[in-house]
Every structure is written in structure tokens, then in C-alpha cells.
Nucleic acid binder design. Sequence first.
DNA 1: AAAATTAGTGTTATTATATAACGGTTTGTT
DNA 2: AACAAACCGTTATATAATAACACTAATTTT
Lengths: 149, 149
Amino acid sequence: MTDTGQNPITDQVYKARQFCEDKGARFTLLREKVYALLLEQQGAVGAYELLDTLKLTESNAKPATVYRTLDFLLEFGLIHKIESTNAFVACHHFDCNHPVQFLICDTCGDVKEIQSVGLKDTLDKQAQSVGFRVVNQTIEAHGTCAACQ
Amino acid sequence: MTDTGQNPITDQVYKARQFCEDKGARFTLLREKVYALLLEQQGAVGAYELLDTLKLTESNAKPATVYRTLDFLLEFGLIHKIESTNAFVACHHFDCNHPVQFLICDTCGDVKEIQSVGLKDTLDKQAQSVGFRVVNQTIEAHGTCAACQ
DNA sequence: AAAATTAGTGTTATTATATAACGGTTTGTT
DNA sequence: AACAAACCGTTATATAATAACACTAATTTT
């Protein structure tokens, strides 16, 4: 499989495989399928909704199947978890190392990922000023996207 | 019951009752008890942990009892939900109208609430720049508090 | 190449979190 | 007193996530 520029999802999956293998991690068929399913979604998806979709081709899939796979994808930054909705969303630029924040449209369900270093730094500084050392951040905004206004 | 300055929790409960009644909402005994229980905790508490505690005095309490009460308290801003841990924490200054962010210590479990207008505005602006209108924000930092370092 | 080790998956069961629905009771209003 | 609305008790169920164990595939060591 090569990056042909023909199919965005295929290309993204290819990039993900390269990324994993470069790190000595195995991008198995199951992991590829789950990642591809998430890429196909326009918004974030719950684990059980994802399971239902996965079952169409992997009839023996179970909750643990999905959660284990999601754990792997999360660990390598290929996907993100939206904490406020318990849903998962594919990440398209796992190779750059930017902080991440989400804009979640409550009307159409679309999730836009933004990468604001300024936002991250502001929170880090606020924390630092009270002696708190930040390890990771959850920043999610709910509202209405441009298209839905 | 008056604000005597003797017991911080009693005083806070008193303030909460005033606040609710000013808004025409009923601060029932159940709501008072749940709010008081949350005030007694040092960190955030899960709904079922709260239920167990509540059962000590309200032996007939059920999940719905707790969730309904939490919903009321959330609606009036007397408590907050920590999305990244599915836990609830009492708010001490529901009367001021500041935005809210949380610093969650993963070592001792303590939750510190901060109110940074700058942080809120930064996120609002970032969103605005891509045409997104923010209705509410979830900002939570995990890490290590000053005491635990 | 065989053995040993590690990583990944299948499967069953269980735990944790949250809501729906309905009936009865209390509170506030007319 | 009658009525309506809000609140609470209760049962059932939906949704989200993990534990534990056996088996298989891949990788490393010998």
C-alpha cells in the first residue's frame, strides 16, 4: 500500500502504519480497521457505536476488543478521547507534537480539533502560579459550529 | 439557621439555601444533605460513592435519588462535574459568575477550582476565529499539586 | 530450527456510570 | 378545597468500561 493521494482515508491509514512501525509498534489489522472506521466518521463516536460498526466485518468483536484497540490508538496518539461525551475521534496529525483542544458542535456533532500552544501555555502558567504542575490537559468547548449558525 | 462563622460547611449550606430561595428554587433536605456531603469531601466524588455515603442516613437512596439531586445542584451551579473522572465537586462561590477551570491532583485526588477569565477568553477567541460559537467550556488539568511535589 | 518470551486476541463475566418510566407525595397556587 | 407543579420512591434498564483467563501469533534467544 502506498500514498497515492487518491483516497484520504487510505493515505491516512498508511501514514499511521508507518508511524507505528517506526516506533516498533504493531499496527495490526484490527487496529487498522478501528482507526479507519474512526476516520470515516465525521464526528466523535462512542465505543459501543463503534463496536456495532466493527461487528459488520468482525462478527466476534466484543467490548474488550474495542477498548483494547482504542487504548492502543490513544497511547500512540492516533486518536483522542472526548471526555465530556465519552467518545473517540481520529487524529490526523499524530506526527506533529502539538497540544490539542476540541470544538464540539452540539447541533451536528462535528468535532474540530485545534492546536493552540497559547491556550496550553496559559493554563500551564495559571497552574504554575498556584504551585500545580500540569501533566496533561482536557480542553473542550461545546457550542455551535460555523456551518450550523 | 444563621451564618455564625463557626462552621464553614453549615455556613456554606446556609448561603446555598439563600441562593436557591432567592431564585425561587426549593433547597430541600435531600439537596441540602447531598450538597453538604460534597462540601465535606476534599476532592471530587463519584455518584455511587456519594450514594453509599448518603445511604448511611437515607437508607432508601437509589441511583436516581443521587443523580436527580446532582442534576439540580449542577443546574444552579452549586456543584461542578469533572468530566475527565466522572466525579462531582462542591462549588464555594456559586454567587459570583466566573468561568471555571480545574486542577486535579492525580496523587492525592484534590481538586482545585480556578477562575481565569483570560483562559476562557482565549478559548472563546480561538473558537471565534474559526467561526465557532462557544456555549460552555470544559477545562481540566491533571498533574501534581503543590503539596504532593 | 526449536524453545522461550512477549504481544495480541477471543471470550466470559463483572463493575461502573447514568437514565427512563411510573406512581405517590408534598408544596405552592387558585 | 381543588388543582397543578415539583419532588421523591421505586423498579428496571441502558450505556460505558474493565478484569481475568485461555489461546494464538510474532519476536527474540538459544
